[in-house]
C-alpha cells in the first residue's frame, strides 16, 4: 500500500519529461543514491517496502549501498568489485531473457 504513496512523488517528477524517459530514470537514480548516502533510504524502505524497492530506486540503492559499504575494503577491491553483488542477478537474468527473446524474434 505504501508503494502508491512513494510512486506518486516519482510520477510528478517523471510525467513532465514523458517524451524523454532517460533523464527521468537518471534523476530518480540520483535521488535514490543521495538518499542512500544520507543514510535515510533504509529508514524509508522499512516503511515503503516494495514501493521503493521495485522501481529503479531499489536498483540504485542496492548499487550505492554496496559501493559505500565496501569502500573500506578499497576502491578497486571493495567498491569496484562488490558494487553489483546484489543487483547483478537483475542484469544477468535481464540479459539472458532479452537474449532469448531477441533470438526468437530474429529467427521467426
Amino acid at each position: 500500500m505504501f508503494g502508491q504513496l512513494i510512486l506518486n512523488i516519482y510520477v510528478s517528477l517523471g510525467v513532465p519529461q514523458q517524451e524523454a524517459g532517460n533523464p527521468t530514470v537518471a534523476t530518480v537514480i540520483f535521488i535514490a543514491a543521495s538518499l542512500t548516502a544520507a543514510g535515510v533510504f533504509d529508514n524509508i524502505a522499512q516503511l515503503a517496502g516494495a514501493g521503493i524497492a521495485v522501481p529503479v530506486t531499489g536498483f540504485a540503492n542496492s548499487v550505492t549501498s554496496m559501493a559505500m559499504e565496501f569502500r573500506r575494503e578499497g576502491l578497486v577491491t571493495g567498491t569496484g568489485s562488490k558494487m553489483f553483488a546484489l543487483a547483478g542477478s537483475i542484469i544477468v537474468f535481464g540479459v539472458v531473457t532479452a537474449f532469448v527473446v531477441g533470438l526468437i524474434s530474429a529467427l521467426i
Binding site: 548516502a37 533504509d42 531499489g58 540503492n61 550505492t64 549501498s65 554496496m66 559499504e69 546484489l86
Partner: peptide, 10 residues
C-alpha cells in the same frame, strides 16, 4: 546479511 544502507524491509 546486507550492506547497512540497503533498503530492505525487515
Amino acid at each position: 546479511r546486507y550492506p547497512t544502507e540497503y533498503g530492505f524491509q525487515r
